[in-house]
Nucleic acid binder design. Structure first.
Lengths: 205, 205
DNA sequence: AGAAACATACAGACTATATGGTACATGATG
DNA sequence: CATCATGTACCATATAGTCTGTATGTTTCT
């Protein structure tokens, strides 16, 4: 066997992520991770000191991917949108596009999985979860502020709630899509959010 | 000791529900349920043959409460609303009212907790979860159809998505409220949904 | 009415297995 | 050969579930 363990490490993380989203962290055993990753205990505990360390690393990796997706689509929206409103609409549209391609119901969001088992994790992990949501709030809120700065009419709006609503709709759509076993739910729900934003500022225009 | 075990049974279910929402089903041990309920193993396994049986009963109880809340608020909305649009707006408003009173972030939805650990449960349980979501979809869809029947203009709308969006927003709001530790999120998100419906049919008017 | 006789509700010790984690040996690779 | 990466055997504890005992309530029969 090669002396490069990074593949093994990745396979462990991939297996664990899939299992957490299917069975929860508490319902996922190390033994099962090992089986699914096709390795042995020695390899597992070489890469991760404890199951808890795996949980932390898994969240860090997901957080990095999430952050990247957020920033990437934000920058694309900034390039593609002609004004502040268009930028937000494009931003949402990009996510719609991404989720429209899925056939299987999206496996789910690791944040949500952890939050529904919050007491299994330490305070630091829970802070990480909170700040992840606040990051989305911040970016969306920034885009909304830009719209209001350009067009005015922000007085009648709860901009924080409107910013949160993107995440809210996404998280809720993941759950609903799984529950009714229909992957199309996600893109369609994001479409409703986009339409809401459109309507809000078209009316206030 | 009294011979009426219904209190004990209820205490087991209450403890289990709280624990599932804090730690997930897989992260909840029978031992812990026993401790929290202040009973012993004998009592537990007298009332529930297995841990799985507890899970089923817990879901049945939650489902019954959920169904009751849905039907109750639906009927109240029917009585209070002057036309179809008002009925839906009142319906959403009633839930806003209920969640606005909460100080603590709502403990969460048992459906969502189960769905994020779906593979731990049998096919029958998963069907129950699906039909619970479809029940909400059905009621909301019915109210939306009524609005369209009265006012027209339903061609441009995805009524199914709009119906689902109530549940989607609620589920997403539960998660977000816990993540950012702010109970006000739930009522405010429902407020946004109500405003969206209002705007959609005010514009189409 | 009173006491067997029975049923219900619970306690607590016990068991088998699953699970997280360790120790150590072995193979590959620079 | 030295070190990194992995396999294997093993261990301690946690966990779901069992068994037996026992207190308390209910029914039945005289």
């Amino acid at each position: 066997m090669p002396r490069d363990g990074s593949q093994t490490r990745t396979r462990i993380l991939d297996a664990a992520e899939a299992l957490v989203l299917e069975r929860g962290y508490g319902g996922m055993s190390v033994e099962r991770v090992i089986r699914q990753a096709g390795i042995t205990k020695g390899a597992f505990f070489y890469h991760f000191k404890t199951k808890e360390a795996l949980a932390r690393t898994l969240l860090e990796r997901f957080d990095a991917m999430d952050r990247a997706a957020l920033e990437d689509n934000h920058q694309r929206a900034v390039r593609l949108g002609s004004d502040a409103l268009q930028r937000l609409l494009v931003f949402v549209g990009l996510f719609e596009e991404a989720f429209a391609e899925l056939e299987q119901p999206y496996p789910g969001c690791l944040y949500a999985a952890y939050i529904y088992e919050a007491k299994l994790f330490d305070a630091d992990t829970q802070r990480t979860l909170g700040s992840s949501f606040l990051r989305w709030r911040g970016v969306l809120r920034g885009m909304l502020d830009d719209i209001v700065a350009e067009r005015g009419g922000g007085e009648a709006l709860d901009l924080e709630a409107l910013a949160d609503m993107f995440t809210v709709v996404l998280e809720g759509a993941f759950i609903t899509a799984k529950a009714v076993d229909d992957a199309s739910v996600i893109a369609r729900q994001l479409g409703e959010y986009r339409k809401y934003v459109e309507l809000l500022f078209a009316a206030g225009r």
